[in-house]
């Protein structure tokens, strides 16, 4: 691994992994607590439409992805607010429509498109230096938004009804939240690919929430875990010559299952607190 760091692309990959972990830990924790994993999956896949649009228009696919996934996120967020009964069905449809339009837009684009698979399955090693600056900027934006609206994000995640009675603008907070997911998704797609974004977004946070009883600490722990998984995954993929995105996800998945088993064990060995309500 050390000798690998002589390569610029490897250094970039490590930096990208660390940067993505911040978004992952902070946004992922909120996604897990608000139980909007499915919605996040929808945003991640619909973002592919933005990649297609970027190629079609001849602009940076990253820009296309940011715009498109923000729009898709707002659309899905509104659906969830307005049509609660069948929200999951509508989100499922938007998920597929987003992806399909990406594929069709790419069909309509002539020229060399070898880069495509890297958006689907991740290709952290091919991340250009400019990408790192984008990630840094998006991270700062995410951190600023979460810090500014932390008390509202926490209150609406814990008890939305009570927040409404306090006149918290819960709908605006919800839409800001899906916007944050869109930004995180765009950052992560280069690292693990759109298809697996949802796993890296949720697994470190799910582990953190099992062990830490404070949201800010959970965000911090999730960030650390995510960094650990990305680095461990990268190292494994380098030494065993495996696909980096999938290796990262498998590392995270094994850790998640271990944590799940350990926390069950802990609960079984030390029964305390109230009986189930």
């Amino acid at each position: 691994m050390i000798e690998a760091l002589q390569f610029g692309f490897m250094r970039n990959a490590l930096l990208a992994g660390l940067l993505v972990s911040v978004a992952c830990g902070v946004v992922g924790t909120l996604v897990v607590l608000r139980r909007i994993v499915f919605l996040s999956g929808g945003i991640a896949h619909a973002a592919y439409g933005g990649i297609g649009l970027g190629f079609y228009l001849g602009i940076d696919p990253l820009l296309g992805a940011i715009g498109f996934s923000l729009l898709a996120a707002l659309g899905m967020g509104l659906v969830e607010l307005r049509a609660r009964q069948r929200a999951d069905t509508v989100i499922g449809a938007m998920w597929a429509i987003g992806m399909a339009s990406g594929i069709i837009l790419l069909d309509l684009t002539s020229g060399y498109k070898a880069d495509l698979m890297s958006y689907l399955f991740g290709s952290i090693l091919a991340a250009p230096g400019s990408y790192l600056w984008w990630m840094l900027g998006l991270n700062l934006l995410i951190l600023a938004l979460v810090a500014l609206f932390f008390k509202e994000l926490l209150a609406t995640s814990y008890d939305e009804t009570f927040a409404i009675t306090r006149n918290v603008p819960v709908e605006a907070i919800h839409l800001a939240m899906v916007g944050l997911i869109a930004l995180a998704v765009v950052m992560m797609m280069r690292v693990v690919g759109l298809i697996m974004v949802i796993a890296l977004l949720t697994m470190p946070a799910a582990i953190a929430v099992q062990w830490v009883k404070n949201v800010k600490w959970a965000m911090l722990l999730a960030t650390g875990l995510s960094a650990l998984f990305v680095l461990a995954g990268l190292w494994l993929s380098y030494s065993l010559n495996l696909t980096s995105g999938a290796t990262i996800i498998l590392v995270a998945g094994v850790a998640y299952l271990l944590s799940l088993a350990l926390s069950r064990l802990r609960r079984a060995s030390a029964p305390r607190g109230a009986p189930a309500a």
């Binding site: 607590l33 926490l154 209150a155 995640s157 814990y158 008890d159 009570f162 927040a163 306090r166 929430v209 099992q210 830490v212 009883k213 404070n214 949201v215 600490w217 959970a218």
Partner: peptide, 12 residues
């Protein structure tokens, strides 16, 4: 499992 203390809830 929601990671929030009694104090944080009351403060809402």
């Amino acid at each position: 499992e929601f990671p929030v203390s009694a104090w944080e809830v009351a403060r809402m």
